[in-house]
Design a binder for these strands. Structure first.
Length: 579
RNA sequence: GGUCCUGUGGUGCAGUUUGGAGUGCACGCCGGCCUGUCAAGCCGGAGGUCGCGGGUUCAAAUCCCGUCAGGACCGCCA
């Protein structure tokens, strides 16, 4: 047990129990709530990080909300019938003999109770007040426990934590860089790291063998519920390993983190190929907590006369007992599907009299019967169908599935999934060159090496893998290419000439020449992991001082202009706003 | 860059559809009463540029246009 006593206090408020009865204690904390009963009796709930204790004081004290107090008094059992079972400390109370007001306080800008959902900007502007709330205290603790457990697990597995620089060279790949002007070399810039990717691979060449880092990463892209400019990663790389070895290391670490927070070890993590994830869940980050899995109906319409279904793929989902979903709602869903990229949405209600749908008349009896059989549909069910290219049909059905069935993050348990065998390329650029799905150093599947440069390059599988938790992409990794001829083959397939390659990744390619061990790695987004484990839908709730969606910090006012002298020293000028 | 939603005393909301006096609810705040409360209770009180600007109208929280801030999402995030 940690000893929390200091020169100013003997105990923490929330720690007092029936065993402490008879002790004289000194406590420090904030006035959470007070209940006055006239001149001679008042109850003050005193709050610190550990919780709340009822203090009995003389009513003459002027103790307002959020005053900071030091209270000395005797712990005693509460009188008959007045124990509070809703409070961990509810069996006892402290009868104050001395109350020192350490600081007075204005009324807080918003209520600190758990019942009110306060405007987030207001919370962020007064984050120091917001952080006093039990929810935030808990989230900060969850976060600290996650990182501590992960550090422990990585150390246990023999990994060495190596720090990498924050001021790095800008590279054209990937996300937009945050950039720092160089004073010594005006006109030149450092970039803040999007990830330690290149450095961690260099540690492999440096013989580190098992590298990890709890690393801050920065990307200047638009913010979302699961994305901030700055975020933390567990960054991992190891030599003389397969992808499976890496997944075992990472599973250990996230398992330890989950156990540290919830008390339960999540157990073995299931694996699923990317193809299967797309086919069954319409997403590369499948949320397997609920059903509504995608059904492939392409075969049924192989020779259909219904023009809308004369597509490479027809996919759908069966909504059990969904037939009572209103026409209005169905129109809404159709609109969403169009926004997501589909040409439309076909809905069918299965009634006693068969399929009820605006398009039923275009479908043959065989097709209708085939649908009912394939979806195992029952009277009262609703079928939703999207016909398109395979990827679009999967994508749209996947979003539809989430829209209709996704439970709150606190429900349905925690389900980690490895998604493996990602495609090496995810499409083609304007010049007709394939675009790497992960990065250009990702090792292709050995069996698919022969397809490089061929006609069906999108079918090439890579040794890249993602870790998914309840539909959140927690992280990704891959086996890296360490053989020169393979790297040359891939760069050639990407349409990158040797000269261009040297210009863009020269120092890494150089490093490959001096003896590169086979290596593979991974990175886990710690903010996301923490959010899911804390039961929060938004990573801002597990970050002490986050930014708003527009990238501003309501507390400090960042970003702010800087003065002209400062700019001049850096050799910078600011353009007038456009328009 | 785009789509959608939100903005009303300190806080959370209702009012906006169908224009008619800043109308209402809960919490908080200030004062009074109250010796066992714990979301204490009772009585009284203060507190408003309906985000901002413009327009329509006899009249705008309400309708229209613009703008700012926030949120969810698409694009983007190798």
């Amino acid at each position: 047990m940690t000893d929390y006593s200091t020169s100013m206090r003997t105990d923490r408020c929330g720690d007092l129990r029936i065993d402490d009865v008879g002790r004289q204690v000194t406590l420090c904390g904030w006035v959470d709530r007070r209940r006055e009963h006239g001149e001679h009796l008042a109850f003050v709930d005193l709050r610190d990080r550990s919780g709340v204790i009822q203090v009995v004081v003389d009513g003459a004290h002027d103790l307002r909300s959020e005053y900071v107090l030091q209270v000395t008094g005797d712990v005693r059992e509460r009188p008959d019938e007045s124990a509070n079972d809703n409070l961990a400390t509810g069996a006892v109370e402290v009868e104050a003999t001395e109350v020192v007001v350490l600081a007075t306080a204005e009324p807080p800008p918003f209520p600190l109770d758990e019942r009110t959902e306060v405007d987030e900007v207001l919370r962020l502007r007064h984050r120091y007040v917001d952080l006093r709330r039990p929810r935030m205290q808990r989230n900060l603790e969850v976060r600290a426990r996650v990182t501590a457990a992960i550090r422990g697990a990585m150390e246990e597995q023999g990994f060495v934590e190596v720090e990498t620089p924050m001021l790095v060279a800008s590279t054209p790949e990937g996300a937009r860089d945050f950039v720092v002007p160089s004073r010594k070399e005006p006109g030149s810039f450092y970039a803040l790291p999007q990830s330690p990717q290149i450095f961690k691979q260099l540690t492999m060449m440096g013989g580190v063998d098992r590298y990890y880092q709890i690393a801050r990463c920065l990307r200047d892209e638009d913010l979302r519920a699961d994305r901030q400019f700055e975020f933390m990663q567990l960054d991992v790389e190891a030599s003389f390993v397969t992808g499976e070895d890496v997944r075992t290391f990472v599973a250990h670490a996230v398992g330890a983190a989950a156990e540290a927070v919830t008390g339960d070890h999540p157990g073995e993590i299931r694996s699923m190929s990317w193809r299967e994830a797309m086919d069954r869940f319409g997403s590369d980050k499948p949320d397997v907590r609920f059903g509504l899995e995608l059904v492939d109906a392409t075969e049924i319409f192989a020779d259909t006369g219904f023009r809308a279904f004369q597509t490479p793929c027809v996919k759908g989902i069966r909504v059990p007992d969904g037939a009572d979903i209103s026409r209005n709602r169905l129109d809404e869903l159709t609109g969403e599907c169009k926004r997501w990229g589909a040409k439309g949405l076909v809905w069918m209600r299965l009634t006693e009299d068969g399929l009820n749908s605006p398009v039923a008349k275009f479908l043959s009896d065989d097709e209708q019967a085939g649908l009912v059989a394939k979806f195992e549909a029952r009277v009262g069910d609703l079928l939703l169908l999207v016909a398109d290219e395979w990827s679009t049909a999967c994508h749209v059905c996947g979003l539809l599935r989430l829209e209709l069935g996704r439970p709150p993050i606190t429900e349905g348990g925690r389900h980690f999934v490895w998604v493996t065998d990602f495609p090496l390329f995810e499409g083609f650029d304007e010049a007709g060159n394939p675009i790497p799905a992960h990065h250009p150093f990702t090792m292709p599947h050995e069996e698919d090496l022969g397809m490089l440069g061929g006609d069906d390059q999108l079918a090439i599988r890579s040794l890249a893998y993602d870790l998914v938790l309840n539909g959140w992409e927690l992280g990704s990794g891959s086996v890296r290419i360490h053989r020169r001829e393979v790297q040359e083959q891939v760069l050639a397939a990407l349409g990158i000439s040797p000269d261009e390659a040297r210009a863009r990744f020269g120092f890494l390619l150089d490093a490959f020449r001096y003896g590169s061990p086979p290596h593979a790695g991974f990175a886990v987004g710690l903010d996301r992991l923490t959010a899911v484990l804390a039961g929060e839908e938004n990573i801002r709730e597990v970050i002490a001082f986050p930014k708003t969606q527009s990238g501003a910090d309501p507390l400090t006012g960042a970003p702010t202009p800087i003065d002209d002298r400062h700019l001049a020293e850096l050799g910078l000028g600011v353009l007038p706003p456009p328009g």
